[in-house]
């Protein structure tokens, strides 16, 4: 089960600047810490650095300065060729939209990451079916992503992210393309997984509904951390 007081994510003085026509300071000396079992939302206006923060947390991008540790591993010191392996075994991703592989069925999409990990077909298929049953999506297991609604696709994406029980799931604006009903269903599922299985979720969002249900709100503006608030039932269980 989750150990909420143990730091899973350590971000220390992280900065990231994109050099285009003008320099854009996407992250500016951000320091924060997240415990296992967190259900945290990173929020802020467009261009505030939410996606960049998630990218550097997931090892998809490297900060220019500072240090990031996930589950004790220093991502800033990990060679590029080992980052893919780290993501595979420690981090789950949910993207804004269109992130299921279109040629694979729902159950095959869930099997994708375990297949990369070399888990045998029978075992990974059984696990995928179990998860689909838990969240009531068993009836769509054979369908292709194009045959699903946006809400169903995102819920499948969340299941894919937790298939191999990673330490951390990063979700970039997961409800951005969903109506309020589907967004609520998705949040219900993420909360359930957080509560029952101790999955750590960090999501970027603009959505007031998501912000309201997060246990912790990390507010960014112009790349800088301007507020870090606890809220809701898990408030006293998260270390700052």
């Amino acid at each position: 089960m989750c150990e909420p007081n143990m730091a899973l994510v350590e971000v220390q003085h992280v900065s990231k600047t994109y050099h285009d026509h003008v320099d854009v300071h996407a992250l500016n000396d951000v320091t924060l810490s997240l415990g296992k079992g967190s259900f945290a939302a990173v929020t802020g206006p467009s261009g505030s650095g939410k996606t960049t923060l998630l990218n550097v947390l997931g090892g998809l991008d490297r900060p220019d300065a500072g240090r990031i540790q996930i589950a004790g591993v220093d991502l800033t010191a990990t060679p590029a060729d080992q980052l893919a392996d780290f993501r595979l075994h420690h981090i789950g991703f949910v993207f804004q939209a269109f992130n299921l592989l279109p040629v694979l069925s729902v159950v095959e999409n869930l099997e994708f990451i375990p297949a990369l990990q070399g888990i045998k077909t029978e075992k990974r298929r059984q696990r995928a079916r179990e998860l689909l049953n838990v969240v009531g999506l068993a009836q769509i297991s054979g369908k292709r992503p194009n045959d699903l609604s946006g809400g169903q696709q995102q819920r499948v994406a969340v299941l894919r992210a937790i298939m191999t029980e990673p330490e951390l799931v990063l979700a970039d604006e997961p409800t951005a393309n969903l109506d309020s009903v589907n967004a609520a269903l998705l949040l219900d599922m993420m909360e359930q997984l957080n509560h029952d299985k101790g999955v750590t979720f960090v999501f970027s969002t603009h959505d007031p509904q998501v912000m309201q249900r997060a246990h912790r709100l990390i507010r960014l503006k112009d790349g800088a951390l301007i507020a870090d608030e606890l809220q809701g039932p898990g408030a006293n269980a998260i270390s700052i």
């Binding site: 392996d85 075994h89 991703f93």
Partner: peptide, 8 residues
Amino acid sequence: VMMALGTK
């Protein structure tokens, strides 16, 4: 997406 998920 595939690479983000860990595909080498």
